Structure formats: C-alpha cells, structure tokens
Simulated assay, not measured.
Amino acid sequence: MGSGAIRRRLGVGLALLTASGLLAVAAPGEAQAAGTSCPGRKVRTVPFSTGSVQVYRSGGAVCAFTVAKNPGPKRTMAVSVQARGHNPVPYQGKHRRKTLTVSVYAGHRCVKVTGRVGGGSVRSGWILC
C-alpha cells in the first residue's frame, strides 16, 4: 500500500472521529452521564413539600438533581430535565439525600424540570427562557 493510500485512510478516519465528536457535543437534548455534582452556576431552586430540585447552567448545558428536605432512609427519588422540543431525560433511584445528576444540552432553549422525593413532587413548567 502506497503512502498516498495510507494518508487518505488516516484522513477519512480522522474526519469520522471529528464528526462523531461534534455530534456528541452539539446534539441538543441529549443526556450526559450521571454524576454527583453539576458544573456551572446555580440558576434555580424549585422547592416542593419533601425536597427541591437544584438547577445549574454552564454555557448551553443544564444540569439538575433532587435533594430531600429531610435525609433519612433510602426512598425513591427522581429528577428529569427536558429541553423544549426534545424528550425528557429522567433519572430515578433509591437514595437517602440526593439523586444523581441529569444533564442536557439545551442551548438557548427553555427547559422543564421535575423532581420527586417519596410522595412529594414538582413540575416546573418552562424555565430559563
């Protein structure tokens, strides 16, 4: 195989990797991996009877998690974030104090967040518009 063919194959491979990386970063409404804290600055707290949803923004990314008002035994907790025009990205699990985070790329779109701790829950409506 000549050096020209190798260069072409390397170029095509590099182009494919670059394109897939850009799609992963730029795809609005896609979920990021769940973590334990949100990057950026806190932009909203949405309270409800048994807890609150903490909402953070960093550039076009919006991240949220639910915090129990009274930490105690493990119970079902949930959080979701939805960028306008896209499906919600939910998380649910049993926790004592707070859920893992849910993160979406919303750009300049409004978002809707929901949270639940035990029997209490909240739905924000469209925020951060």
Results as ranks from 00 to 15, higher is better:
residue 56 Y to S: 04
residue 51 G to D: 05
residue 48 F to A: 04
residue 52 S to L: 08
residue 50 T to I: 08
residue 41 R to H: 08
residue 58 S to P: 07
residue 59 G to E: 12
residue 54 Q to C: 04
residue 43 V to K: 09
residue 53 V to N: 10
residue 56 Y to T: 01
residue 40 G to E: 11
residue 52 S to F: 06
residue 44 R to Y: 11
residue 38 C to D: 14
residue 62 V to T: 01
residue 41 R to P: 04
residue 49 S to Q: 07
residue 63 C to Q: 01
residue 52 S to P: 06
residue 45 T to S: 14
residue 50 T to W: 09
residue 47 P to F: 05
residue 45 T to E: 15
residue 56 Y to D: 09
residue 55 V to K: 00
residue 43 V to I: 11
residue 42 K to Q: 15
residue 56 Y to M: 04
residue 61 A to V: 12
residue 55 V to L: 03
residue 63 C to M: 03
residue 38 C to N: 10
residue 53 V to Y: 04
residue 42 K to Y: 01
residue 54 Q to N: 14
residue 40 G to Q: 11
residue 40 G to W: 12
residue 42 K to M: 15
residue 52 S to G: 14
residue 52 S to T: 14
residue 40 G to N: 12
residue 53 V to C: 03
residue 48 F to L: 08
residue 46 V to R: 07
residue 39 P to A: 09
residue 39 P to R: 07
residue 44 R to D: 13
residue 45 T to N: 10
residue 39 P to W: 10
residue 64 A to P: 01
residue 40 G to R: 06
residue 49 S to H: 10
residue 54 Q to F: 09
residue 39 P to C: 04
residue 58 S to F: 10
residue 65 F to P: 04
residue 43 V to P: 09
residue 43 V to F: 05
residue 64 A to R: 00
residue 66 T to N: 00
residue 56 Y to N: 01
residue 52 S to R: 15
residue 52 S to M: 11
residue 57 R to K: 15
residue 44 R to K: 14
residue 59 G to T: 12
residue 61 A to D: 14
residue 65 F to L: 13
residue 59 G to L: 11
residue 42 K to D: 11
residue 49 S to V: 14
residue 42 K to V: 11
residue 52 S to D: 15
residue 67 V to T: 12
residue 52 S to Y: 06
residue 52 S to Q: 14
residue 45 T to M: 05
residue 43 V to W: 04
residue 43 V to E: 14
residue 57 R to F: 07
residue 53 V to E: 11
residue 60 G to N: 11
residue 59 G to P: 07
residue 66 T to P: 00
residue 42 K to G: 11
residue 59 G to F: 09
residue 47 P to I: 09
residue 55 V to R: 03
residue 47 P to E: 08
residue 61 A to K: 12
residue 57 R to M: 01
residue 38 C to G: 02
residue 52 S to N: 12
residue 62 V to P: 00
residue 53 V to I: 12
residue 49 S to T: 09
residue 48 F to T: 09
residue 56 Y to A: 04
residue 54 Q to T: 12
residue 46 V to T: 07
residue 38 C to H: 03
residue 62 V to K: 00
residue 66 T to Q: 00
residue 47 P to M: 10
residue 48 F to C: 06
residue 67 V to H: 03
residue 59 G to Q: 10
residue 46 V to D: 01
residue 41 R to V: 14
residue 52 S to V: 07
residue 38 C to V: 08
residue 50 T to E: 15
residue 44 R to A: 14
